[in-house]
Amino acid sequence: MTDIEPDATVDARGAACPGPLMDLIGKIRSAESGDVIRLLSDNNQSLTDVPEWVEEAGNELLALDEHDDYNAFYVEKV
């Protein structure tokens, strides 16, 4: 488990694909450079969607915590 303190959390648990990724993109839009956003998603598609977009947008996936019924992605806006 990471000990990173996020600047904001997006709880997209329960949302159908591509909701979690779009929620993350929406939060990153309004974030400052250097901010860390934590995305909570229980949609397995996020495991591929989120890292792909983070790389495409030039941001950084700092950590991925796998919980029993959801995953937590820590994304830094570069």
């Binding site: 694909c17 591509p18 990724l21 779009m22 993109i25 598609q45 969607d49 792909e52 977009w53 495409e56």
Partner: peptide, 10 residues
């Protein structure tokens, strides 16, 4: 389109 495919529904 915002994600990696042309529509939200795969």
């Amino acid at each position: 389109y915002p994600i990696q495919r042309v529509h939200g529904n795969p």
